[in-house]
Simulated assay, not measured.
Amino acid sequence: MTATAPSVSPASAWLQRYYFLRAGVSIAWIALAVVVGRQNAAVGAVLLVLYPAWDALANYIDARRTGGLGANGTQMFNFIVSVVTAVAIGVALTSGMVATIKVFGVWAILSGLLQLATAVRRWKSAGGQWVMILSGAQSAAAGAFFFKQASSGIALDVTTVAPYAGLGAFYFLLSAIWVTVRNARARSAVKSG
């Protein structure tokens, strides 16, 4: 029997790997932000640009594996929004962290809503989407919170984004585990059937 049993769709097998990858990258980003970015503003700035740039790349790769950007409109828009945001963060960094966190907040709202829409679209074809719906909604809410933080007068740096990235890592990891369990049950059903 192959690693992917006939009862496990290629899309479900892909999402299992994809969600683990997204969780791992988020965890690595957090570690870099906390350990290096907090002390080195230049590294922190690069990490802030890389966060939405990685999201753009991840959406592109995921869409490509599931029919391309043309067949996945929500991911195409998320890709575009994330690319534009990476550039906008680079520009906002020249004005300071308040502007940067506000741009990040707008992106968190838009990308969260697009992630939620992607999960709704995938509901019937893939497991773990309830977690992605929660993640998308949380991202949109976090975007509004970034505006509050940016206007509060507190010290802002790359670690301002770390809790948001941590929740993202949690949701991707939970989705990965959910899909893994679902796939294992499907394989077990084939063997016992």
Rank of each mutant, 00 (worst) to 15 (best):
G193M: 05
F172S: 09
V34M: 07
V8I: 06
G153P: 11
A11P: 01
L93N: 09
I89T: 06
V190I: 10
A53M: 14
I109W: 14
Q138P: 01
A45I: 11
Q129D: 00
T2Q: 07
V81S: 08
Y164S: 08
T66N: 13
N78S: 05
V181Q: 05
A137T: 15
V84G: 10
S139R: 03
Q75Y: 02
G70W: 08
M76E: 14
F79D: 11
Q129E: 12
A88I: 13
I30G: 05
S111C: 12
F145Y: 15
R17W: 11
I154H: 05
L113Q: 04
A184T: 14
R122N: 09
V120I: 14
Q39A: 08
R182D: 09
G44L: 12
V36I: 15
I30M: 08
L32P: 04
G105V: 08
S7F: 02
N40T: 02
S152C: 11
A141Y: 06
A45T: 03
V25C: 03
A176K: 00
S152F: 10
L32S: 07
L114A: 11
L32Y: 03
S125I: 15
A108L: 14
A99R: 03
V83G: 08
L116Q: 10
I89C: 09
L69N: 11
V46N: 06
A56C: 08
G153R: 11
P10V: 00
S9N: 10
S95C: 03
A92S: 06
V131H: 11
M132H: 01
G127P: 05
R65I: 00
Q138E: 03
V34Q: 06
W123Y: 04
N183K: 00
N59K: 04
S12V: 05
Y51D: 11
Q39T: 02
A31E: 02
A144G: 15
A88S: 15
S135A: 10
N78L: 01
I133W: 02
S135C: 07
V91S: 05
S111A: 14
A92P: 04
G73F: 07
A150S: 10
A169L: 10
L156G: 06
G127S: 12
R121M: 04
P10I: 02
R17V: 11
Q138A: 13
I101N: 05
V179I: 15
G128W: 11
A11I: 02
F145I: 15
L113A: 09
I30K: 07
T160R: 02
R121W: 03
V43P: 08
V87A: 10
W123Q: 09
T118L: 07
A45V: 07
V106K: 05
A117L: 15
K191M: 12
A119M: 04
S192W: 06
S125K: 10
N72I: 05
G37F: 01
M76L: 14
V84N: 08
D62I: 02
G112Y: 12
G143V: 12
L15M: 09
A86Q: 09
M132F: 06
A176D: 04
D62S: 12
V120Y: 10
M76P: 06
L48H: 01
G136C: 06
Q149C: 04
T160Y: 01
A92E: 00
F79A: 12
A71I: 13
L113C: 12
G127R: 03
A13Q: 00
N78Y: 02
A11T: 02
S152W: 07
Y171V: 00
G136M: 00
N40K: 07
Y164R: 06
D55Y: 04
R64I: 01
G73V: 14
I27P: 01
